[in-house]
């Protein structure tokens, strides 16, 4: 759906070149929820603006649904933009217009719909986002979550195949964030709309993303399935971004242990398992068949998108040989492990 090739963008100043996006390449398949995660200032918003060419990249191509946007004329580009829905952190609703007119705006801009068509379409969208009763109200009287629902209705009114989101939940409280994410997931699954979102919140990636790319300093430093990136990130920067709080906690525990226990037959491992493996008595099996003693230092069970996962920090008490056996068993069972100490 989206193919970005070697995209670079800079905001040159007198002093330096100021490269904001550095040779970015991405491939977003149809029907997926693709997340870009990165710290503030990493270049996420700039990347999104390059996607519909609000900012023209210095080099590289942006191909959306088979059309290379960088080759289009201004009026062709406007037509293409009408096929891409977009939602924003601060909603960007027009305070002078009713909810109905805000949602109707993109259709009115297209200019080839009559009043009845517009009404039909707006009513359908308002029903989808659950704001049918708010049609004649003004944005000022809505809560943040409701405003974002209006934003979503407006973005979808032109029946786009692609929805872009720039930190759509970052201005919302956790509960509202959940409900908006659920709505986005519903839109993705029921209407088959591809979603490309940028966020600095791990929660968003966890709840709805199929794939994720990590951006830092204008570069994609790691990308892959949300599962892999979230559970066992490879790049140090990703690790820092993704397991910051968690790793703090367990590394503290590990260090605490090793202060007292120099004994070499204590091994600390971080195990992650997803899907069916989550429900198997993994530790029991390992303990029995490899002859190791274990204790759980810390554990977490959760869901990524709709897939259950577990992550455990385990201490095995055994020699190197038994440890190797345990590792082999884990590999066979599809448990991802990492030897921390």
């Amino acid at each position: 759906m989206i193919k970005i090739n070697g995209l670079s963008k800079s905001y040159p100043t007198k002093k330096n070149k100021n490269l904001i996006l550095d040779n970015i390449s991405l491939d977003v398949p149809v029907g997926q929820v693709f997340g870009i995660i990165g710290k503030s200032g990493a270049g996420k918003s700039t990347l999104l603006k390059c996607l519909n060419l609000l900012e023209r990249p210095d080099s590289g191509n942006v191909i959306i649904d088979g059309v290379d946007l960088t080759t289009l004329s201004t009026s062709e580009l406007r037509k293409e933009r009408q096929q891409i829905g977009i939602i924003f952190q601060h909603f960007n609703l027009l305070s002078s217009k009713t909810i109905f007119d805000n949602v109707a705006l993109p259709l009115k801009l297209q200019g080839n719909h009559n009043k009845a068509e517009i009404k039909l379409a707006v009513d359908e969208m308002l029903a989808l986002v659950g704001l049918t009763d708010f049609a004649t109200k003004y944005p000022a009287s809505l809560s943040g979550g409701q405003k974002q629902r209006v934003g979503i209705a407006r973005a979808l009114i032109t029946k786009p195949k692609l929805l872009l989101s720039d930190e759509a939940t970052s201005a919302l409280d956790p509960q509202t964030t959940s409900s908006i994410l659920e709505l986005l997931l519903e839109i993705n699954q029921k209407m088959g709309i591809t979603i490309f979102l940028i966020t600095h919140e791990l929660e968003v990636v966890r709840k709805i993303c199929d794939k994720v790319a990590v951006i830092d300093g204008g570069k994609i430093i790691e990308q892959g399935n949300a599962f892999d990136i979230l559970l066992h990130p490879q790049q140090p920067l990703t690790r820092k971004l993704i397991i910051e709080e968690e790793s703090e906690k367990y590394l503290e525990q590990v260090n605490h242990y090793y202060q007292f226990e120099k004994s070499s037959n204590k091994h600390i491992l971080l195990l992650s398992f997803v899907g069916d493996a989550t429900y198997q008595p993994i530790l029991n099996i390992i303990s029995k068949s490899a002859g190791v003693e274990f204790s759980i230092l810390r554990g977490e069970l959760g869901r990524i998108k709709n897939m259950p996962f577990g992550q455990l920090l385990i201490e095995f008490e055994c020699d190197e040989k038994n440890l190797a056996t345990a590792c082999k068993i884990m590999k066979e069972m599809g448990v991802h492990y990492e030897i921390v100490h």
């Binding site: 406007r78 002078s96 009115k108 801009l109």
Partner: peptide, 29 residues
Amino acid sequence: DDGIFHMAESCGASTRQIIWHILLPEIMP
């Protein structure tokens, strides 16, 4: 707000449309 312009351009609005559909209504009060 800058975001309003960002939104309008993302919807594929022309400058003329931005003036008539967005700027003038927004500053009416």
